[in-house]
């Protein structure tokens, strides 16, 4: 009896390994990078992407449930999700853009060409639809670093008190929306 039991052990280990490794095949290694869930929006003071004269702070964003979508015209996956985000806006979801400037280095590139960037953004949004209430320009990626952003697109769901409830890495599509965002949005409204 004891012998038979021991003979089964390798089989059990094998089955356990199979299950473990099989899960690994479909696990998303980027899911776990979330340091800011449950925290309030970090303090910032950044310019508007389109308007030189207005600036945004975390205090001004309070009072509404909103999505903060990190994006850039250089990012192909963002291009893909823009039209779906626009649909979400039409359904009444408030989306604020955090424009992630990639590859600009003040030491090498000289003064930043704001007009070229605005034109690029307008051209792109004219093609895909504009999901954003407004865009915050994060030229030196300081807010992005404070939020634990590693690239684009990434999206945060923030509630009325300014608490970060969700941090999604990758594009938002109908499947992601149904699985991750919709249940929380329903609770909040």
């Amino acid at each position: 009896m004891n012998r038979k039991l021991i003979a089964i052990v390798p089989l059990l280990i094998f089955v356990f390994l199979c299950v473990f490794l099989y899960q690994g095949l479909f696990a998303n290694p980027r899911e776990i990078q979330t340091g800011r869930i449950g925290d309030t929006m970090p303090a910032f003071n950044l310019p508007d992407l389109m308007d030189n004269n207005s600036r945004w702070t975390e205090q001004q964003l309070k009072g509404d449930v909103y999505l903060l979508n990190v994006w850039g015209t250089w990012c192909p996956t963002c291009l893909v999700e823009l039209s779906y985000l626009t649909k979400l806006r039409e359904q009444g979801v408030k989306i604020i853009g955090l424009y992630y400037v990639q590859g600009y280095d003040a030491d090498f590139d000289g003064p930043f060409d704001m007009n070229a960037l605005r034109k690029e953004v307008n051209d792109m949004l004219a093609r895909t639809g504009n999901p954003y209430q407004f865009n915050i320009l994060d030229l030196h990626r300081t807010l992005s670093l404070d939020l634990g952003v590693s690239g684009a697109p990434e999206t945060f769901l923030v509630d009325k008190q300014g608490t970060i409830l969700l941090h999604h890495t990758g594009d938002i599509n109908p499947r992601v929306w149904r699985a991750k965002f919709a249940p929380l949005m329903q609770e909040l409204n």
């Binding site: 776990i32 990078q33 979330t34 340091g35 800011r36 925290d39 670093l145 404070d146 939020l147 634990g148 590693s150």
Partner: peptide
């Protein structure tokens, strides 16, 4: 860094 990027970092 952990505050921002999680234990992962």
């Amino acid at each position: 860094m952990i505050d921002r990027y999680g234990y992962f970092v």
